[in-house]
Amino acid sequence: MSAGRLLRLVAVSWYLHLKMLHRSMFDSVMQVVWPLFFATTALLVYRATGDRDALSYAATGAAVVTVWSAVSSNASGILQRERAFGTLELLVAAPAPFSLSIMSIVLAVTTTGGYAVAATLLWSRFVFGVHLAPAWPLPFALALVATVFSFGVLGFLLAVAAVRYRAVFALGGALELPLWLACGFLVPVALLPSWLRPLSWLLPPTWGMQAVRAAAAGQSLWADLGLWAGSTAAYAAAAVWVAATVLRSARRHATLSLT
């Protein structure tokens, strides 16, 4: 397939799945409301300290991490949903690369997470009076998009890795808050126990968030972005490999439909 056709595949699939997600109360409205409860609780804790810098720190992290809530709960169940619709076999049989088909669905899910970012930023601004004024707005936006993209890649890996797990929504839910903690969105990574820090460094959103904070403070973010790019590429490659391996196994053992 030519690059143009691949791009068209991603765009059309993204648009169609975005439309479908909007039809579900759980997949659209809840993706905004659910993380907002946790973000508000965290912001109220930080507000109790009276430290405006700490509140801004938490507001920035809370806004970005809400995307992960949407991705972890929704992306993990992508293959189950296709299975329930009876379209998983069609996706596998189609000449389009399977990984690309799934990635475009993950991108649609990630887009719904974008609403939560906007909602949390507005919430922080009007309820908590947090004015986010990044020193370097453009690099800040770039780092923000990079972090959100890394959530999409993690969601992609989760979606394909859990193809044989019937109750995958539970796994996605269980991974939601650990990432809030491990990637330094609400708590500096330096405060985490020493055994947890190496795990944080292995997760691309950690570097994305560090780049976001660096751009907000007017410091150089390129080293963090470099580490983000490397780790994200590694996860993407792993996801493509897992997708191909798991798919081959499911086709060989006739377990694609799990019935």
Partner: peptide
Amino acid sequence: VSPWILVPSLLVMPLAQILLFSYIGRSAGI
């Protein structure tokens, strides 16, 4: 009640919530 849901949803998730807010409390100093 199935262990595939019970373990992540009713054992891992509450622990994650406890750890998240305990560390937020440590970070905020309250």
